[in-house]
Design a binder for these strands. Structure first.
Lengths: 110, 110
DNA sequence: CGAACCTACAACCATGTGGTTGTACGTTAG
DNA sequence: CTAACGTACAACCACATGGTTGTAGGTTCG
């Protein structure tokens, strides 16, 4: 069963994108305020190309988008995908809540 | 900066564990109701050992726990880790909200 | 124009991941 | 006790991932 509006593969991409500290850091920064790829690249102890790849992973997961500004490519946070996975996790918690409720009901019957 | 009570490596493990459709399915099932590893293994088109590995990934992420019941090992959902990553995502959305707010304030000044 | 800058992308390498099979061991049922 | 079941784990394989360097193209500045 698919929960919410995310296909399985989309969900895979979003969680995979979030499963790396550098990518989470990039995401927080660009959510706070859009930044160019080279601005981001200066922040981390790795090559420009490596940061470029991290941005590409976030982009494939629809967690960020890029827009040209002159010769720079500005990376911006996309809060929609974030909200969808957040709702997915809430759904998991809801299932848990139902389980606890059901167990309580059974205990009450006894 | 660390958000919430998760270290970076813990967060990596949780998101990585969630970045696979089989593992998410296992998680939903054991949250709904605890199941043995072999019960779970029967559900998926892969070997017992493969399912065992998926459970191990979920366990390392503290998303499930195992308890012996006779010769079976019962896998149960641990909703705590789930709640922590959910709060982390909420924090990201909050940063976004602040950004939007700040932009609105600047527009109001003009 | 020419130089510097920002980006894109290919090729390559080490390591991790997801799957397999096989073996071994504890536990329960008959 | 013996057989069957449930689990654990090692060894192995194909492929993805995260990093590197190098090359090339578009854009801005002097």
């Amino acid at each position: 069963m698919v929960v919410g509006s995310l296909s399985g593969a989309d969900t895979d991409r979003v969680f995979h994108a979030l499963a790396d500290a550098t990518r989470r850091d990039i995401l927080i920064r660009v959510i706070r305020s859009g930044q160019s790829v080279s601005e981001l690249a200066r922040l981390y102890p790795m090559s420009f190309a490596a940061v470029q790849k991290h941005v590409a992973v976030l982009e494939r997961a629809a967690l960020v988008s890029k827009t040209r500004r002159g010769r720079e490519q500005i990376v911006n946070g996309e809060v929609g995908a974030l909200r969808r996975v957040s709702l997915l996790l809430d759904a998991y918690e809801e299932i848990w809540r139902q389980r606890v409720e059901q167990i309580s009901a059974i205990l009450d019957e006894e």
